[in-house]
């Protein structure tokens, strides 16, 4: 079982080398599946069918198992993300200080729920269970930048700016 035939990546995209390195570091074992999926997602932004197939064959893991693992964990996404990302914290502190109103406002304005991307692909709405900035609750993270003390107005303002920048 040691000298498994190497499977060729789906394309000569350089990013596959990073994925291969992760698999190699984990000895091409099934236990490295989650680590490998993390690398694919980091490199390509999401997990498409092609990459899942490649990972499954490389790690000798059944396709359905790879799919099962990819959909079990919140952090993996099988669809491409929007250009921008808005992560609203739903930790307890943020919740009691007004997260539900933020989400509702976004849903009313842009028609998306957490985990979804606007139709125009402008941004994805995500939720996180506590980003660890409870002192600033409620908190939202816009493209990695944490902004505290959010109100529906302030959140909408930030989102609108993404559209204005286009």
């Amino acid at each position: 079982m040691q000298n498994l035939k190497q499977i060729d990546p789906p394309s000569d995209d350089k990013r596959w080398r990073i994925v291969q390195a992760t698999m190699r570091r984990n000895g091409h074992k099934r236990s490295g599946l989650i680590e490998t999926l993390h690398t694919v997602q980091e490199s390509f932004g999401f997990l498409d069918e092609e990459s899942l197939r490649y990972v499954a064959f490389s790690l000798r893991t059944p396709l359905s198992q790879v799919y099962g693992v990819s959909t079990f964990y919140h952090l993996f996404s099988l669809k491409p993300a929007g250009k921008h990302s808005c992560v609203v914290c739903t930790g307890t502190a943020c919740y009691i200080k007004g997260t539900p109103q933020l989400l509702q406002e976004i849903q009313e304005m842009y028609g998306i729920k957490p985990g979804e991307t606007t139709e125009d692909g402008a941004f994805s709405l995500l939720t996180a269970r506590c980003v660890g900035s409870c002192g600033l609750a409620p908190v939202a993270v816009f493209d990695g930048e944490v902004l505290g003390n959010q109100t529906p107005d302030r959140t909408m303002e930030t989102l609108r700016r993404w559209y204005d920048d286009e």
Binding site: I34, E35, H38, Y73, R129
Partner: peptide
């Protein structure tokens, strides 16, 4: 290190 992927 093993990285979790978001599952309480």
């Amino acid at each position: 290190i093993r990285l979790g992927a978001g599952a309480f």
